[in-house]
Simulated scan of single mutants.
Amino acid sequence: MNVIHDIELYRAGRTEKGVGYKYFVPESVNVQWQWKDAQLGALLEKASISVGELNAYARLVPNTELFIQLHVTKEAVVSSRIEGTRTQLDEAFMPEEEVLPERRNDWLEVRNYTQALNRAIAQLDTLPVSSRMLRNAHQILLSGVRGEHKQPGEFRRSQNWIGGASLQDAVFIPPAHHYIGELMGDLENFLHNQEIFVPALIRIGIAHYQFETIHPFLDGNGRIGRLLITLYLVSEKILHKPLLYLSSFFEKDKSLYYDNLTRAREKNDLLHWLKYFLVGVDETARNASQTLSEVLALKQTKEQLITEKSGRRAKSALALLGHLFISPVVTVKQVKSVCDLSIKSANDLVELFQSEGILKEISGQTRYRIFVFSEYLDKFK
């Protein structure tokens, strides 16, 4: 028989003594959750409808794959920005050699996150959302960047902390490392437990809070915890395509995000966290649907324009336009390769796109110029 927990009566966990500090051990979450609060039910319904509409829209739209990479890259930029990187969305699409040396480490972190996210989404066909999948993503995330010496791909074997300069003045100290296996096992079981009846959005809201509280890695927990949300929704077929990312909502007021996580731990207020989370899901899903609608309209307009203006070059021009919807920052050399053209023809095609206001030169150079499809990129800002 499954244990039943009222969300209103939630008890977050307990503190235990370390050497000169106290750490927090959260309660297990793999239980049957229920609630009486009418507002939570209303928010759940609203968020579920918005996610359903996004999913239905994405299924009806041809070539959704064209736009997914922009969603993924934006998530990589914003989720990394929460952790302090400064890479901008257009910069994320630049070749590494074109990124300023002082910004290259940030660029590498965003690139790693993009690769980790893409790899994890691809793995969903053969691997459930699990500790193994998250460790795989973590290994890619920290490869060759600032956290490369912090056990990439492994759960921590020592104590970490959040905020402050040391364990003595930390804002929050997660559970000791010997609890991680047990707690992550409980979290994984909760995500896949078919014997309890917990709506998917409530389940992943609780799971995200629990993951951030466990903080199982030495570095990269925030990014992996936010990635977990999208992976779960796709794995459960709540989303047909990975088009929903909450990092922008969390980043809009970072202190509110952290305050709500802290409030759940310190005041046993999981209810308030879940309300905040569901508001974020609803808002993010509606924004994603709006972006998809605007992008489709833009694509139709530009295809019509290019067909009218490019004459005999229409095939190459449409090929370039299609490429720009996947990767909106290009060089003439890339255009040459994508469209299978001579360097002169590639230059001429880029000039046509410039004259029609589709591409804008951003490098300020006369050689090795970089061009951006800014009208498209702006839809994601």
Rank of each mutant, 00 (worst) to 15 (best):
T262R: 10
V171K: 08
N189D: 12
Y368R: 12
A92E: 06
S166F: 04
E308S: 11
G205T: 09
S293D: 02
L134C: 07
P101Q: 07
V281S: 00
H177W: 15
E16M: 09
E188Q: 13
E266F: 11
F155H: 08
W35S: 13
L134V: 12
K275E: 12
K22I: 03
D90I: 10
F277W: 05
W35A: 10
L359S: 07
L187G: 09
L278P: 02
G41V: 12
R286S: 12
R135C: 13
Y113C: 10
A122W: 01
Y245E: 07
L292P: 05
R156T: 13
F217S: 11
L89Y: 07
Y245R: 04
A38W: 11
R119T: 15
A319T: 08
N268E: 07
R263Q: 10
F190Q: 10
N189W: 09
S131M: 06
R146F: 14
A165M: 04
R14T: 15
H215Q: 06
K22W: 12
R367M: 08
S345P: 04
G357L: 12
T284F: 03
L298T: 15
K150D: 14
I370S: 00
D169K: 03
H272K: 05
L117T: 15
F155I: 12
V372P: 00
Y10S: 06
V77D: 02
N136I: 15
G185K: 01
T291M: 12
I370F: 02
L100Y: 10
K360P: 01
L246E: 06
Q168H: 11
Y10W: 13
A264N: 04
S80R: 02
G220S: 02
D282G: 02
D348V: 05
L191D: 02
W273K: 01
S50G: 03
R263W: 05
E83D: 11
I82W: 03
R135V: 11
T114N: 02
D348N: 11
F371G: 07
S310A: 14
V129R: 01
S48D: 08
A137H: 04
C339K: 00
P26V: 11
I204Y: 04
K150S: 15
I306Y: 04
S345Y: 08
I121K: 00
